[in-house]
Write a protein that binds this DNA or RNA. Structure first.
Length: 827
RNA sequence: GCGAGAGUGGUGAAAUUGGUAGACGCACUGGACUUAGGAUCCAGCGGGCCAGCCCAUGGGGGUUCGAGUCCCCCCUCUCGCACCA
């Protein structure tokens, strides 16, 4: 290794950073194994999509993760810190089309470039674990997991109305539809009927909800969002017999206590029983016209505005099983087929939507829940009463309170066998079929004889055709006859290969488990390695993944546990959702034209400066306001550290230890501050990763060392201060600190050093400032020995010149002494 | 509408269990060193009358010897969900 001559006045970050990066690369400094004595720590940043080049959001995300990784290593942990690429997806296909190249080529070029950028940041990854989800060595195992899930009944195929993005020519999951538009291209989403594959995530709904309580290391906001997304409702499922028919309509309600107030029934326009109800009725034509019109209106309104409540009578009636009342059946535009049963028992007095509908069509309103106060008058009510109260007009349940009545009514329905307690979730099964090329092929074969036949495991992987030939086709698979042609594994006849590819969110749902042994060629997951490393101790990424990715990953973890691969229930013990990088009041983005390219910054200031700035400007969970001058500030600080240590490194020549008894005042103060800083920095990192305050603590120590003094500083104390500064700063600015560590004569790299030990005695102040207050207002300060007792403090306060003046001889009412803090005199 | 979070100097932000509000940085001002300084160093830096004091953590109440911190009401902003029966 070539050593550049150390100089006292110039911090050549380029030379320094290249030298250490090269050494880390050659020595594979961060290679880890699950066979180790030390306790494990798994820190993971959400892996990037290889879009071209890294942006400031990446810089921030990976700087935070790298500090955690390096800090934990210094604390003695065996740290797993991997990196890879979420490499399948639409942008590659779009870019490929635009440029006339293959998506694989585009993706791999981007990966190569971005890998170089990450290495230029000096991030401490175990690069031997790098994986790209578009590689057959990754998706082959995903295909195998698909087969296992299929076998277990966790995957099914059905025809549904899907969210179709015409621009992207593909289906979207419900989670990928934002305000009626595609999450990627922002174009309106259209309904389309087609066959698709689904993961039965709903069979884990209860566990996904219940285990949220375990996630105490997650931001409450994310837990709440997931809870709302899963959306559990409990209530009564109940049958309403259709008049003159052997059919019944099933309904679900969370308010069984209002069942005596039902005055009509509303069906979604998609409800399968409508045909039967209107057949031969005079209303048939009107109902069909309404259904048609409503379907069109729902498409046009792109879901973002509430429609007026409208509907038509079907001409049919059903019977309320509790009252035997005759209930007219309507079709209504506001009832959702996807939730509950698509049929609603309408209680206009106690549901605002039903109320509006009833007022529009002049339907009866019957009050059955009455809170204390004046009784409601259906004729004059301005809105529905949705709160609890005592039941009225409710037969045997009259007089009961809502909550008790709900239980009693459900019990009654059960006893009389027309209803039962029921739980409904908002969460729906995860549609995973995509009609695009650049994704993992779904490993099944369609046979006219045998139906859907899984591809035998020995035939895996089903390779994505053309991916390893630069000129290969990247048309959607349903347009590639060579791919489609297959023989049925069961009967041997000609059959068709499935042409859907998997949603890219499938890849990111289990990559963290694959990292524990990414090269394994006999199974998707190395059970031994996964048992050692998982769960991820600290996961770090953007809050935009609060629902989608994090819910899917949790689902996969539970599913992989049930398949025998994992032993944990939850994948991520602690979650840090970092804020956005903001410039000029808006998120940095190409479309806004306010991006700052990390490359330019690294070239101009060096990786350490860029890292330091992104850590110092704001705590990680908060948005980070971009500020060019702030980068200058970070750069200035590192230069100061460099000059400070290079100009005084002679103190490292002798190895004397700190001799507390013989220190002058300046040295004693520095020794104390050094230990106080260790405590402060450690606590800032440990409690909540507030690196901004950790860095300001180090800055204070540097300020003290460089402040002019009238006494010489003891060499051992100075050396201790310098070592401490370098060690504490190392996780944030590793290149500079390693360089200075070496320049001060250390043989072992700082990377292998331990976090400095805090000495409480050394940090203890022997003199403290006591604040003197009168009536809670600061009136003076006095410097006293730390062990001054309460009585003396009181005396000191009363004798204070200013206090004495205010007292003017009178006795204070009360004197409050807070040890080591203040004395408050109450007049 | 429902749910969650946040409002502190010119600015990014700090403030154990309630205990000196504004640490640290940026910007700014003055000075030193310099042919020069956008380098570096020293000093100042919430507001007002510039002494002593008063006013200041979105606004208004309250609890307390003492409130940025706890309680109640209101305002503003951000983010999620949104006809979920």
């Amino acid at each position: 290794m070539q050593a550049s001559p150390p100089t006292n006045d110039r911090y050549y970050f380029k030379t320094i950073e290249q030298r250490w990066q090269q050494r880390w690369e050659e020595e594979k400094t961060w290679k880890v194994s699950h066979r180790a004595e030390r306790p494990k720590y798994y820190v993971l940043e959400m892996f990037p999509y290889p879009s071209g080049r890294i942006h400031m959001g990446h810089v921030r995300n990976y700087s935070i993760g790298d500090v955690v990784a390096r800090y934990k290593r210094m604390r003695g942990f065996n740290v797993l810190h991997p990196m890879g690429w979420d490499a399948f997806g639409l942008p590659a296909e779009n870019a490929a089309m635009k440029r006339g190249i293959h998506p694989a080529a585009w993706t791999h070029d981007n990966i190569d470039y971005m890998r170089g950028q990450l290495k230029a940041m000096g991030l401490s990854y175990d690069w031997e674990r790098e994986l790209a989800t578009c590689g057959p060595d990754y998706y082959r195992w995903e295909q195998q997991l698909f087969l296992s899930m299929l076998e277990k009944g966790l995957i099914y195929r059905k025809e549904t109305t899907v969210n179709w993005c015409d621009d992207c020519q593909t289906v979207l999951a419900r989670e990928q539809v934002i305000d009626g538009a595609c999450w990627r291209c922002d174009q309106p989403v259209l309904p389309k009927t087609m066959h698709g594959w689904f993961f039965k995530i709903t069979s884990y709904a209860e566990e996904l909800l219940a285990d949220l309580d375990q996630l105490t290391g997650w931001p409450e906001k994310v837990v709440t969002m997931q809870r709302n997304w899963i959306g559990k409702s409990t209530g009564l499922a109940c049958q309403f017999q259709v008049e003159n028919s052997d059919q019944a309509i099933g309904i679900f309600t969370t308010r069984p206590d209002t069942v005596f107030g039902v005055t009509f029934m509303s069906l979604a326009v998609e409800h399968p029983m409508i045909d039967l109800l209107v057949q031969g009725k005079p209303q048939e034509e009107e109902v069909r016209a309404f259904m048609h019109e409503t379907v069109l209106a729902k498409q046009r309104s792109s879901l973002d505005q509430e429609l007026d409540k409208r509907g038509v009578f079907t001409g049919s009636y059903c019977t309320n099983p509790f009252t035997n009342e005759r209930i007219p059946i309507y079709v209504a535009n506001f009832v959702l087929m996807e939730y509950g049963t698509g049929a609603v028992m309408a209680v206009p007095a106690h549901d605002q939507r039903d109320f509006e509908f009833a007022r529009t069509y002049d339907l009866p309103i019957k009050v059955v829940v009455q809170p204390e106060g004046d009784p409601f008058d259906p004729a004059t009510m301005a809105e529905a009463f949705e709160g609890p109260g005592a039941l009225v007009n409710s037969g045997q349940f009259t007089g009961m309170e809502s909550i008790a009545a709900q239980q009693a009514i459900i019990a009654e329905a059960q006893r009389r066998q027309f209803g039962a307690p029921h739980v409904t979730y908002r969460l729906r099964d995860w549609g995973i079929s995509r009609q695009r090329y650049w994704g993992a092929p779904i490993p099944v074969i369609h046979c006219d004889n045998c139906g859907i036949v899984p591809v035998p495991e020995s035939d895996l992987p089903i390779l994505l055709p053309g991916a390893d030939e630069p000129a290969g086709s990247h048309s959607p698979l349903h347009q590639q006859p060579d791919f489609i042609a297959a023989t049925c594994p069961r009967c041997g006849r000609q059959a068709r290969r499935e042409t859907d590819t998997l949603d890219t969110f499938v890849e990111s749902s289990w990559y963290f488990a694959r990292y524990t042994n990414p090269g394994l060629d006999s199974a998707p997951i190395d059970k031994e390695a996964a048992a050692y490393w998982l769960p991820v101790d600290q996961y770090i990424g953007g809050v935009e993944h609060a629902i989608l990715h994090l819910l899917y990953a949790r689902f996969f973890t539970k599913m992989l546990r049930d398949l025998g691969y994992l032993t944990v229930d939850e994948p991520f013990t602690n979650l840090l959702t970092q804020g956005m990088v903001i410039k000029d009041g808006a998120k940095m983005s190409k479309s806004k034209g306010n991006v700052v390219d990390p490359n330019d910054l690294i070239n101009q200031y060096g990786a350490d400066t860029v890292r330091l700035f992104s850590l110092f400007a704001a705590p990680p969970e908060r948005d980070l306001e971009w500020n060019a001058q702030g980068v200058e500030g970070a750069s200035r600080f590192l230069n100061r550290v460099f000059r400070m240590i290079m100009s005084q490194r002679a103190c490292f020549d002798q190895s004397v230890t700190v001799d507390l008894a013989n220190l002058n005042a300046v040295s004693r103060t520095l020794h104390r501050k050094t230990h106080q800083t260790i405590k402060r920095v450690t606590e800032s990192i440990e409690s909540n990763f507030h690196f901004n305050t950790a860095i300001s603590g180090i800055m204070e120590l540097v300020n003290l060392v460089t402040a002019p003094t009238d006494e010489p500083v003891d060499a051992a104390v100075l050396r201790e201060a310098f070592s401490t500064i370098l060690t504490l700063l190392f996780p944030m600015a590793p290149h500079l600190c390693e360089e200075l560590w070496q320049a001060t004569g250390h043989e072992q790299p700082l990377n292998d050093a331990a976090w400095p030990a805090f000495n409480a005695d050394a940090a203890k102040e022997d003199e403290i400032t006591i604040v003197i207050q009168v009536n809670g207002k600061v009136r003076g300060k006095v410097l006293v020995a730390a062990d001054t007792n309460e009585a003396s403090l009181k005396q000191l306060a009363v004798n204070d010149e200013k206090v004495a003046k205010m007292l003017a001889g009178q006795q204070p009412k009360k004197i409050i002494v807070v040890p080591k803090k203040l004395v408050n005199i109450v007049l």
